[in-house]
Write a protein that binds this DNA or RNA. Structure first.
Lengths: 337, 337
DNA sequence: CTGAAAGCGCTTACAG
DNA sequence: CTGAAAGCGCTTACAG
């Protein structure tokens, strides 16, 4: 390991000067700068960022805490966060909590000891109290995909407007002329989507029927089962809003197995726009979630806090808007129904 | 930020003693230990791991370089690596290269400066030369999912036996009585699977027909198209081996659209065992890839190298074996074909 | 068992 | 513009 002292010796200067040419914090004469750069090159010197981190009190590292990567949603979000962090010369310390608050707490504390410059905590990966104590100990924190409103008032949060997702889907079905619209959602995580669904129905003067609201667990299979139950009702719906694409695809499979045709007999709309949504038959109409846009917003906000510049005055809440992507699984209601 | 000096002052000892109770490297009398622990508690002291890293020359951090997390394969592998690392009190610095060697090089160098204790480099995420130079500069490195044999001889490597995957799939189809067996693969990354496929056919005395080997890009769509092309042959195959499950599912969709029945008219087998494989209709027979087992093996091997204990004498190559998972998409050949 | 001191590899005022 | 010195928060021989 060659150190800054080796370089200084070879360039016949002091380490302060080497540091100055490296950081460009203080002007250095062209002549000595050249000597130093030459020495660096000859020695193949690379600064030790741990030492620099200790001296400067910052590590150019961001801690990212997510529930899991098995969920492609988080995998993609992490990918984008890494990308944005990289653009700003930051690296990512990643950990997963598998929805266990204890694991979340453990990871937060460990990462805090490691002097990361800031945290992005996603998806209820940790208890809000532990996150708050983090912030109280002077770390910058941004929450994201938090899915719960309460007690986060004092922390900046970047989220997706899932209520709007529910509204857009429902409004689309209403505009297609549907009145008997059912929903398959996983609660509590998809509660906001259901709210959007219900609000839109109510505003349209349509009562929300309990038997038209089914619980799933976000899996294909649960969508399949929920759809079967809906089709077995005395008065089945003519359209189904599913809280995510997997359940929508499961519902489509169930409908096909009942020898009903989509969108002729039933319309189906999902949420997410996963890659399979475009490949199903018929292709799935869905609400597309701008995960990457959200990831970028969260990362950039955190970096602003860290750099202490351009800080928003209010502890703010950024909501990124989803949008409707019409494909072949929804259509104007069949007048015979 | 409370430091070790604060604790020492309060406990009326020197920082060395505080350090000793923390690291347990040197015995400390029960009495002073109690005083120190008390002070730590009162002050809410947590050691600064950056400082410790600088002093000890190790950071308890592993660098993980993968091509992307968009591919669920890598997402799952990263998840398992994090888990194993966590068990050993190591954390993960993650970066993605998107198959760009330049990006790979940049990330490797940056992480090396950060004094991570070791590297896991996956999936041709970087040029082998850059990885070797890393090792030459004293870092521990383990390759994984490397997919290329050459010039890795001197580096330890943990991989999945994809050739065996090709063999298992093909042998299964042969045992079902199939003789006209086609393959859909993405090369070069799935080259080894194709080799396993061809070797098994050849050993069974069956010629490998060029028109029975189709290229895909691992997507559902490419499997779909490749299967259509195979079905259009004057002598179509009675079984298809797809290099991954997505292409297998695409092939199944194409077969269904041609009004052929699986497995009655055609058998289909994939590789991976993604979660959708169990949910397709019929459920997909596939070769299950022990990603997590591989991830664990790679991580534990790297940790052995780092800790310098229990080091294997040979620069070794560990191959983890996949296994056949029979579901409903394969069956004994229809004697009418 | 405990303390005094040097060291890890950088940066940062402060003089000159 | 450059150097001498202290400091970041720990650990680690070495005395005692």
């Amino acid at each position: 390991m060659t150190t800054i002292a080796d370089v200084a010796r070879r360039a016949k200067v002091t380490t302060a000067t080497v540091s100055n040419v490296l950081t460009q914090r203080v002007p250095v004469s062209d002549k000595t700068r050249a000597r130093v750069l030459q020495a660096i090159k000859e020695l193949g010197y690379r600064p030790n960022l741990v030492a620099r981190g200790l001296a400067q009190g910052k590590t150019l590292t961001l801690a990212l805490v997510v529930p899991t990567l098995s969920n492609p949603f988080f995998a993609e979000v992490v990918e984008e966060i890494e990308h944005v962090a990289d653009l700003h010369d930051y690296q990512l310390l990643l950990s997963m909590t598998h929805n266990s608050p204890e694991e979340g707490k453990r990871h937060l504390e460990r990462m805090a000891s490691r002097w990361v410059d800031g945290f992005i905590v996603m998806g209820m990966a940790a208890d809000i109290a532990d996150v708050l104590s983090l912030r109280d100990s002077g770390k910058e924190v941004v929450l994201s995909v938090w899915n719960q409103d309460a007690s986060t008032q004092t922390l900046p949060i970047v989220d997706i407007d899932f209520r709007l997702a529910g509204e857009l889907a429902t409004r689309h079905l209403l505009e297609c002329g549907h009145r008997r619209i059912a929903a398959i959602v996983e609660e509590p995580v998809q509660l906001t989507r259901r709210k959007g669904f219900e609000i839109t129905l109510t505003e349209a003067g349509i009562p929300v029927l309990p038997e038209y609201i089914r619980q799933g667990d976000s899996s294909f299979e649960s969508g399949y089962q929920a759809a079967l139950a809906l089709l077995a009702l005395p008065q089945p719906p003519t359209a189904i809003f599913a809280g995510n694409d997997w359940m929508a695809l499961g519902a489509m499979e169930a409908i096909a197995n009942r020898n009903l045709s989509i969108p002729h007999d039933l319309s189906v709309v999902g949420v997410d726009d996963i890659s399979q949504a475009a490949h199903s038959h018929p292709a799935l109409t869905t609400i597309s979630i701008p995960k990457r846009e959200m990831a970028r917003a969260a990362t950039e906000l955190l970096l602003r806090y860290i750099q202490g510049t351009d800080i928003p005055t209010e502890p703010l809440k950024i909501l990124v808007s989803p949008h409707l992507k019409v494909r072949q699984s929804t259509a104007r209601i069949n007048s015979a129904l």
